[in-house]
C-alpha cells in the first residue's frame, strides 16, 4: 500500500506549530516514535514541543529532561504535556496546524508565566492593536 511520503527532517522537525485559531504555538522540537505491538513497525505517534524538548534533541538530554520534569512539577499536571498526539495535527505543510487551543499546550507554559508575572502588570498590556 502506498501512502504520502514525508521526510521528518525536511517537513516536520523545526516547523512552526499553529493552533486552531492560527496562533503561533511553538516549533516541532522532536517527534515521538513507538513500535506497534501488532505489526512490529515503528510509527510516529506524537509531536514533541515544549520546555526542555529542544535541549533533549540537541544532546543535552539530562538538562533538557530536568527542565521538562521541573515544568511538569510546577504546572502540577503529572502527565507529559510536551507530547502532542499526531492525531491532533490537521494539516502538515510549511506550518503544522493543530486542532487544539494554544493555551492547552506545554509551549504556552512560559508564556503564561511571563504574562501573569511580568507583562500583565504593565499598563496597556490589553491594548488592542488597531486593524
Amino acid at each position: 500500500m502506498t501512502g504520502r511520503i514525508l521526510y521528518a527532517g525536511l517537513e516536520l522537525l523545526d516547523h512552526q506549530l499553529r493552533d486552531r485559531d492560527g496562533r503561533l504555538c511553538g516549533n516541532v522540537d522532536d517527534l515521538e516514535v513507538e513500535r506497534s505491538p501488532d505489526t512490529g513497525e515503528l510509527y510516529v505517534t506524537a509531536i514533541v514541543a515544549g520546555p526542555g524538548a529542544l535541549l533533549q534533541r540537541m544532546g543535552r538530554r539530562r538538562l533538557g529532561g530536568w527542565i521538562e520534569r521541573a515544568n511538569r512539577l510546577v504546572g502540577d499536571q503529572g502527565r507529559d504535556r510536551n507530547i502532542i498526539p499526531l492525531a491532533l495535527a490537521t494539516r502538515i505543510g510549511p506550518n503544522i496546524d493543530l486542532a487544539v487551543d494554544a493555551e492547552d499546550l506545554a509551549t504556552a507554559d512560559t508564556e503564561r508565566w511571563v504574562r501573569d508575572h511580568l507583562i500583565g502588570h504593565l499598563p496597556g498590556n490589553r491594548h488592542r492593536a488597531p486593524e
Binding site: 506549530l17 503561533l24 516549533n27 509551549t107 507583562i119 498590556n125 490589553r126 491594548h127
Partner: peptide, 20 residues
C-alpha cells in the same frame, strides 16, 4: 527561533515573551 507568538499586531499580553 523559539516558535513563540510575536508581533505588535496582537495585544501585548498575547505575545508576552516577545515583549519581554
Amino acid at each position: 527561533y523559539m516558535g513563540w507568538m510575536w508581533g505588535k499586531y496582537v495585544r501585548p499580553r498575547q505575545a508576552s515573551r516577545f515583549h519581554l
